[in-house]
Design a binder for these strands. Structure first.
Lengths: 248, 248
DNA sequence: CGCCCGATTGACAGTTGTCAAGGAGCGTGG
DNA sequence: CCACGCTCCTTGACAACTGTCAATCGGGCG
């Protein structure tokens, strides 16, 4: 999956596509140069594991492009995704080398990695970074809590509708979201990964996708491209309050 | 439920039972005095709502004693707990007055509240607080992710066993955890609240509790007091790896 | 062309939810 | 002092949703 033409060799932050959203969002020129000195890029192919749960990670990183996941696996193979990392999201926990979850490249992924030790030292003296990191962590916590409602209380159909609306919002943000226009987006996950995200089996995911298609809530172009004729209908299917915020 | 004899009038942080674990854990004497100037105590009776989702909260707070919950409710009444706040846990999000979830006193609760505005200002210039808050938020995020595995992939019986082991760990930590000794603890939640925590119905919770009791995994003294004759048997029932860390 | 991976669909089973009845503990008031 | 009512909990019968197992489909690639 081609996510970007960002060059690994290029190290100038000012050209970085996530410059204004990542952990470095509030940094000034001087701070960017400090970060620049401790950073390096790494890429992973779709399906590759970035780190296994329990292993040490010598860096922390921002996702520059592509999609990665955090997941836990039980002894008997049951799997639950616990984080879906898109562009600008942060990987790794400061002051703790050992990672708690398997980190996997869902699509081809490029990371902007910061060597752990100097990053942790910088964190102490650079409020622009630590404040931004706190804010991002609080956002992730909120997202995790929305996700918990989905996992604990929603029906399979509501889970799928919720997932589609979450992806639609993320993928189309920034792009012109004209009211009344069809919403079209690409699913970044296979049916199996969707199942891991939603606490379902891939068969149930497939059936519910077919059901939403049969009922005209969505249309499919191929397996991955989704078209939503009326977004409010999709929202109704999520089970959430209709007034849960402005659309786009 | 009597959780503490901590006096609301007493304002000296050095006598505070959560002094070394809360958001103020790393503060020096001077910083404590600054916090002291902007703090006040509030108490809530079991069952009382502290704030409703969507309302504004003019303070942030630490739980001094008792148990509170964060929960979301769907239009049709389905409810999912998304946070269980015990002593030293933090309530409220800096720089955002509106709360996202219903905050409820599960037992009688005492809060140490900081007026929002001055706390937010202090956060900027006091790394001891912001660093501790980041650490606590990361811990909460990890807890939320463990919880997501429980909600998404575990059976009803595994959910109950997982919940019991989580509570046992929290309630008995600090107390002498002699290996081989029976573990005894008090459930802070009703069956219905456990159901909201675990994404089950209260009937299923009740049935699984009875099942674990029938199979000798736990014993019940009354409805709320639980005795675990062999903690490793309980761990087996959670479905987690046995080597998931040292007990206690 | 044939293989392989991901996706779809069907038949059936099993876990959990729903609806309903009843029990246990506790405080209140006659 | 005991009956009553209340809340919380337990248990049963049945239904429904989702999982399991299995067969098949379709597109991409060697």
């Amino acid at each position: 999956m081609q996510h970007t033409d960002f060059k690994l060799e290029k190290t100038d932050c000012s050209a970085c596509p996530i410059r204004h959203r990542a952990v470095c969002a509030r940094c000034d020129q001087d701070e960017l140069e400090q970060l620049n000195a401790i950073k390096f890029y790494r890429s992973f192919k779709a399906g590759e594991t970035i780190v296994w749960a329990g292993d040490d990670l010598d860096f922390v990183a921002s996702v520059v492009g592509g999609v990665a996941s955090l997941a836990q696996t039980m002894e008997d193979g049951r799997r639950q995704m616990v984080g879906l990392l898109l562009a600008s999201d942060f990987i790794g926990r400061p002051n703790r080398k050992a990672v708690a979850y398997d980190v996997t490249a869902v699509s081809d992924v490029t990371l902007c990695c910061f060597r752990r030790k100097p990053f942790e030292e910088m964190l102490i003296g650079t409020p622009h970074i630590s404040q931004r990191l706190l804010e991002m962590t609080l956002d992730e916590l909120d997202a995790a809590r929305e996700w918990m409602l989905i996992l604990g209380r929603k029906t399979a159909r509501e889970k799928i509708a919720s997932f589609l609306s979450i992806i639609a919002r993320r993928e189309t943000q920034g792009k012109g979201g004209e009211v009344g226009t069809d919403v079209v987006f690409e699913l970044p996950l296979t049916r199996e990964a969707m199942a891991d995200y939603l606490g379902l089996t891939l068969e149930t995911v497939s059936r519910q996708m077919s059901g939403l298609k049969r009922d005209g809530v969505i249309q499919l172009e191929g397996k991955r491209r989704v078209l939503v004729p009326d977004f409010s209908v999709l929202i109704d299917e999520t089970g959430d309050d209709a007034d849960g915020g402005v659309l786009f």
